[in-house]
């Protein structure tokens, strides 16, 4: 029984490497989905995530942005083992997944909240049972699991006396998303992945949930990976931003710095696609033409070169390296790489 106690009172996976060791390190992480084709047709794959490296430090919030199909959600799902890893490594607090750490153990430390608050709750369970389910499956006695659930309901702003016995359909969208957050926290995770978790909520409710997330981060000492397409929201909640395009990371840097000055042309385009909020200064030129290319057959060289306003011949032939601009600010663009030959073409 003493083993069960650790789940309820302390983080299920205790801090091992100290504060300087990243909570998550992804190395050359890859996820390819096979595409069904004819018997004789060559085998094709969707390169959903194609060899990305990143870290998430303890206690920080990493915002992930990019257009649909860029691999944000797949990256999140890889971290929690919802899709199979094609290649690369995930290291959780110094322990490599499938080598030092089983998937089951990883999932105690990493939990996820999805966009669709209704689809991610069991319609036949009361919300109290839903929140208590995770701990119960992991060996916490029924009474104790229910106590955890009631405590969490209180913390997520739903009065247990009024709400504990309700079913998901009896709640509003914002309340359901609070339950999903509570359900995720019942396992006392250290990393919470929020995949468009506030995107489906109305603006006024979204602000409430963002406030709640900020409170919970403090109270539970959490680390967030926050996926969203709304750059205003991402800026508000993130310490660092990771920008993805067609399965690759194009830029990583401090959120505030990136908000003011973007190094990669794609990041710049994303930010210029934000509505101006000034009726006298409406956007006049579309930030980008067309849609992202097909990830089954991504463009050669820099994957963004087909839509990039600054592309030159080198961009279509040579894959850009990640260049460090400042402390913690990296960009994969020939524009910033003196050795790439981009400037010579210009001359």
């Amino acid at each position: 029984m003493s083993a069960n106690k650790t789940i309820t009172t302390a983080p299920s996976l205790a801090d091992i490497g100290g504060p300087r060791q990243p909570l998550i390190t992804a190395k050359d992480l890859t996820c390819h989905f096979p595409v069904r084709a004819g018997i004789l047709a060559p085998k094709k794959v969707v390169r959903a995530v194609d060899g990305i490296d990143f870290t998430i430090a303890k206690g920080e919030t990493l915002g992930v942005v990019g257009e649909s199909g860029c691999g944000k959600s797949t990256t999140a799902r890889l971290l929690i083992g919802l899709v199979p890893i094609t290649g690369g490594k995930i290291i959780y607090d110094g322990q490599e997944l499938n080598a030092d750490l089983s998937l089951r153990d990883l999932r105690r430390g990493v939990q996820m909240v999805f966009q669709d608050s209704f689809a991610s709750l069991n319609p036949r369970m009361t919300i109290e049972e839903t929140i208590a389910f995770g701990p119960k499956v992991n060996g916490v006695p029924q009474a104790e699991a229910l106590a955890i659930a009631r405590d969490l309901l209180d913390r997520i702003g739903l009065d247990p006396a009024r709400f504990a016995g309700r079913y998901p359909h009896e709640l509003s969208g914002g309340q359901r998303q609070r339950v999903n957050i509570g359900r995720a926290l019942a396992m006392r995770p250290r990393l919470l992945i929020l995949d468009e978790a506030v995107s489906a909520l109305d603006k006024s409710v979204e602000a409430q949930v963002l406030n709640l997330l900020e409170d919970l981060r403090r109270d539970f000492d959490l680390t967030y990976m926050f996926i969203s397409h709304d750059l205003n929201v991402v800026r508000f909640i993130s310490d660092r931003l990771m920008v993805m395009y067609l399965g690759e990371v194009v830029e990583v840097g401090p959120a505030e710095a990136l908000y003011h000055k973007q190094a990669h042309p794609y990041t710049a385009a994303l930010f210029s696609a934000m509505p101006s909020m000034d009726p006298d200064a409406r956007t006049q030129v579309p930030p980008l033409a067309g849609d992202p290319p097909n990830p089954i057959d991504p463009p050669s060289g820099c994957r963004f070169h087909t839509r990039c306003p600054l592309a030159k011949s080198v961009c279509s032939s040579l894959k850009p390296r990640a260049i460090t601009l400042n402390e913690g600010h990296q960009v994969a663009c020939h524009l910033h790489d003196p050795a790439s030959g981009y400037e010579e073409v210009a001359a």
Partner: peptide, 24 residues
């Protein structure tokens, strides 16, 4: 006014949002 505040335009990290309480 509440809607405009909830739009987060220019909201700074760590600041508390002026959320409209309750639901419609």
């Amino acid at each position: 006014k509440g809607l405009l505040a909830a739009n987060l335009h220019g909201a700074v990290k760590g600041a508390r949002l002026d959320a409209i309480p309750g639901a419609p």
